[in-house]
Design a protein around this nucleic acid. Structure first.
Lengths: 203, 203
DNA sequence: CCATTTCCGGACCGATTAGTATAGAAAATT
DNA sequence: AATTTTCTATACTAATCGGTCCGGAAATGG
């Protein structure tokens, strides 16, 4: 389909990135349309709505882009060519580095992006909660795969691993937001992974 | 000083509890004065400001009350009559149970109460960040005490313990908010504390 | 009973919220 | 060049935000 008519003057991609940064730093609700439009190069409300539909649909698009870029640090969880232990360790380490990098807001958009929401924005909260649930499932799948592989023994303790790892993963968002550096988190990950080692050696 | 004049008609304490519940469930910014006044028994703006000063001072008072009540699950951290390991384990377990109890909002007000803030409410964000830093220091003090006691050996791995434990503690707020139950978190805590055990046995 | 003190209801403040309607200009296609 | 398409700018909703002010009512202490 040929594109006709006057093309928009601002760069939609750059605008999306600007919105991503704003939402990441402040979260969904406190980020106002005025801020968004300003960061997109003082575009008009009409241009904004023509390009993005609404604040909520823009946020959904922002989350999508986040998942396709920064969020790819979690990709190892679903890469079955990796050993389960490596998949989880890589995910944790890459998350730690990404969330503490200062060239963009710290912490995790999925964890922190819609913590404080009025009831009317429940759907936004649900969007991120579903994504967190996906992480939980990814971690659980790795542990299950390790049990199936014989890397881990099936035991009550092994069953606690997914919750333990997920809680730590999500907790990093808070620590990164509070200023922790990658090196400190990375060292903690090494210690955490010793739990896995001890369960592996027990077989 | 004798109290003269007409006494206020609503129960200030009950009103504070209502505000605590609202702020806990929704966070600082999305909780509007209208909601607050309504939950306090449809009091008037004048009554509200006479009793509480402003939204921010009310929030500070709410945080104070939270710390004096629900937040007391962290008290073991500063109880030097407890063995450091017990102090930390109790703090984790009591936090897990408190944050997952359904008779009040789930998660932790200190972690989740002001995640999404406009720059103009930075002071509110700072208030909670300072409290989280206090938790960090409390956990670190326990680990240091354990090293001084000889319960833990001083080692690079031991030095990672505070970050590991704090990250998990703060992560529980996210998991509790997402619906995890106390039993699951409790089991994960048992596994996490094995890290401590292995460092203790290494001496 | 009187005077004082405080509270309460309600009107009101300016600012900001997300979102819309309209009108005209600009660019691409034909 | 004419037409079509879609842009932009501006003015403008209605609602809500946190917060203030005032006048009258109510309860107290003397």
């Amino acid at each position: 389909m040929a594109r006709t008519g006057r093309p928009r003057e601002f760069d939609r991609d750059k605008a999306l990135d600007a919105a991503l940064t704003l939402f990441w730093a402040q979260g969904y609700e406190p980020t106002s349309l005025n801020q968004l439009k300003a960061s997109m190069g003082n575009i008009s409300p009409a241009s904004f709505y023509a390009a993005f539909g609404s604040k909520e649909t823009l946020f959904r698009e922002v989350v999508q882009r986040y998942l396709e870029t920064y969020g790819q640090v979690m990709a190892p969880l679903w890469d079955e060519t990796l050993a389960p232990r490596d998949a989880i360790e890589q995910t944790l380490r890459r998350s730690a580095r990404m969330q503490t990098t200062r060239s963009h807001p710290t912490g995790c958009l999925i964890v922190l992006g819609a913590c404080n929401c009025s009831p009317e924005n429940q759907s936004v909260q649900d969007l991120l909660a579903a994504e967190r649930e996906r992480s939980r499932q990814g971690i659980k799948a790795c542990v299950d795969r390790a049990v199936a592989n014989g890397e881990l023994t099936a035991s009550p303790t092994t069953e606690t691993l997914p919750v333990l790892l997920t809680t730590f993963l999500h907790g990093m968002a808070c620590e990164a937001r509070d200023g922790d550096r990658a090196k400190k988190l990375d060292a903690a990950i090494t210690t955490l992974m010793q739990v896995w080692n001890s369960l592996a050696m027990a077989r």
